[in-house]
Design a protein around this nucleic acid. Structure first.
Lengths: 191, 191
DNA sequence: AATATATTAGGACAGTTGTCCTTTTATTTG
DNA sequence: CAAATAAAAGGACAACTGTCCTAATATATT
């Protein structure tokens, strides 16, 4: 009945972390139950004690992402005091994750693209990650004084970032990533 | 030994067309051999007479796309006589395919994103579709007088289109598609 | 120490995957 | 027409998928 940070919770967190990495590197469909089990160092049916279905694991992975990204956004707000600087921090995330982006694409974008194909219910689950950034960016554009078009600007920036990630991933091009990030920051400064 | 437009070639073309549609709507992994067979109205092992592996089907699908897109590009060149008008035709393709884009995303982009995860060899096959558009756009920017940055501009436009497709697909947002397309055309006109 | 709960260990399930074989039937070529 | 080839029909394969059960062991609570 009690809920302390027991060993089981650590195992659960391990599973989620392994699943997140595997989903990112190989996709949701490309990652089998078995592979998650092996990566977590468990036994076959043991994982069932923690998650009944693969979808449940995805849900936990999304929540894990949410926690991390929420902390990241809070840090950006703490570290920068102008809306422009905060928006630039968002763009800097792109160049800060050069390697992974070129190697595996954007974790949020590729997950949504994969799930959007056939399983719209699951994609709705993954979409909250986009919502998080969209809403945060919208708030920053409001701070900048673009109240009426704030959300459109947020989606524009989100889309630009997605596009950059796709092309950089397809062509394994780190320089493009840097170049486009600079353009995005110039765009922010000119607003 | 002979190679006329026999019934077999028609069947082969049917398989490729079915596979293309299924790959687009459900993804490469999401489409099984069986499903392609059923959609083509064939029997289980019969397809083996046309394609040995699933990868071979993908190759044929990519070639089919290539043919179609090459014809499209030729048409744009025939119908418009300024580089700007031709570039605008590219952007108009986005709004012209509103429904499919919102429903399934960009066929080229989503295919590359999926294959880029784990099967880089196959992704290299699919990448030629990006190459086709990149090279064509590059040529248009050269015509416009931006010789030195022509390829960077082409990749920029390609990325913008991809980003728009991703966001519009994730949020099922047709209006965003139209709005962003307009912005892209304004960007082209201002170059 | 006794009881209850959490976790581990191992195995089993039916369904589906991509691949591949053979035999029969159509079609084309000489 | 006869011979050769193309295509259709049907079935089989091992490997893997996600899911689920039960029994044993460890840990925590009373």
């Amino acid at each position: 009945m009690p809920h302390m940070a027991s060993k089981g919770e650590k195992t659960r967190a391990d599973i989620v972390e392994c699943a997140r990495r595997l989903f990112y590197e190989h996709g949701y469909d490309g990652t089998s139950f078995t592979r998650i089990v092996e990566a977590s160092g468990l036994f076959r049916g043991n994982i069932y004690h923690y998650f009944k279905t693969k979808d449940e694991i995805l849900l936990a992975v999304v929540e894990r992402y949410l926690d991390d990204y929420r902390a990241l956004l809070a840090r950006w707000e703490a570290e920068h005091d102008t809306p422009r600087a905060r928006l630039r921090a968002f763009v800097d995330m792109i160049t800060g994750h050069k390697m992974e982006l070129v190697e595996y694409g954007c974790p949020i974008g590729s997950l949504n693209t994969e799930l959007g194909k056939d399983r719209r219910v699951l994609q709705h689950t993954a979409r909250v990650l986009f919502d998080l950034f969209r809403d945060w960016l919208t708030a920053r554009f409001v701070e900048l004084g673009h109240k009426r078009q704030a959300e459109a600007l947020a989606l524009h920036l989100l889309g630009r970032a997605q596009g950059v990630a796709v092309i950089a991933h397809v062509y394994q091009d780190r320089k493009l990533l840097v170049r486009e990030a600079q353009q995005l920051k110039a765009w922010i400064d000119g607003l």
